[in-house]
Computed example of a mutant assay.
Amino acid sequence: MKSTLSVVIITKNEEHDIRDCLESVTWADEVIILDSGSTDNTLLIAKEYTDKVYTSIDWRGFGVQKNRVLAYASCDWILSLDADERVSEALREEILNAIQYDTEAIFKIPRLSSYCGKFIKHSGWWPDYVTRLFKRGEASFSNDLVHERLVFETNAAKLTSPLLHVTYKDLDEVISKINHYSSLGAENSHHKGRRGSLTSAIAHGLWAFFRTYIIRAGFLDGAEGLMLAISNAETTYYRYLKLLYLSK
Rank of each mutant, 00 (worst) to 15 (best):
K169G: 03
S183C: 08
I178E: 03
S161T: 04
T160R: 15
T160C: 10
Y168R: 11
G185H: 07
V174S: 02
H190R: 12
A186I: 06
V166K: 13
Y181N: 03
L184P: 03
E187S: 14
I175A: 11
D170T: 11
L164P: 02
S176Q: 13
V166Y: 12
S189I: 02
H191K: 14
S183Q: 15
D170E: 09
T160P: 01
L163G: 05
H165E: 00
L171F: 15
N188L: 06
S176V: 09
S183G: 09
R194W: 05
T160E: 13
D172F: 08
G185W: 00
Y168D: 09
G193S: 10
P162N: 07
H165K: 01
N179W: 04
N188G: 02
H180Q: 08
L184M: 15
D170R: 10
V174D: 02
S182I: 07
S197D: 09
T167K: 13
G196Q: 04
G196R: 04
I175T: 13
I175E: 06
S183P: 00
V166T: 12
G193A: 05
P162E: 01
A186S: 12
D172L: 09
E187A: 11
K169V: 14
K177E: 07
E187M: 12
E187T: 08
H190W: 15
V174P: 00
T160L: 15
S176P: 00
S161F: 02
K177D: 12
K177N: 15
Y168G: 06
K192M: 06
Y168E: 10
S182R: 05
G196I: 01
K177W: 07
V174W: 05
L163W: 04
A186Y: 05
G196W: 01
P162T: 08
Y181I: 03
Y168M: 12
E187G: 09
R194T: 03
L171Y: 11
H191N: 14
N188W: 09
N179P: 00
E173A: 09
D170K: 10
R195Y: 07
I175G: 01
L171G: 11
T167H: 10
S176A: 08
V174E: 03
S176W: 07
T160D: 11
G196S: 14
L163Q: 11
S189P: 00
V166R: 06
N188T: 05
N188D: 14
S176E: 13
Y181R: 13
S176N: 13
L171C: 04
T167M: 10
N188F: 00
V174H: 05
S176T: 12
K169D: 08
H180N: 08
L163V: 11
S189C: 03
T160Y: 11
P162H: 06
S182L: 06
P162M: 09
Y181A: 01
D172H: 12
Y181Q: 07
A186F: 03
G196A: 07
H190M: 14
E187N: 15
T167F: 04
I175V: 15
K192N: 10
I175H: 08
D172Q: 14
P162R: 07
R195E: 05
L184K: 14
N188C: 07
H190N: 12
T167L: 05
S189H: 02
I178R: 03
L163K: 07
G193N: 06
P162S: 11
L163Y: 01
R195V: 14
G185I: 11
R195L: 13
N188P: 00
A186Q: 04
H191S: 12
L163R: 08
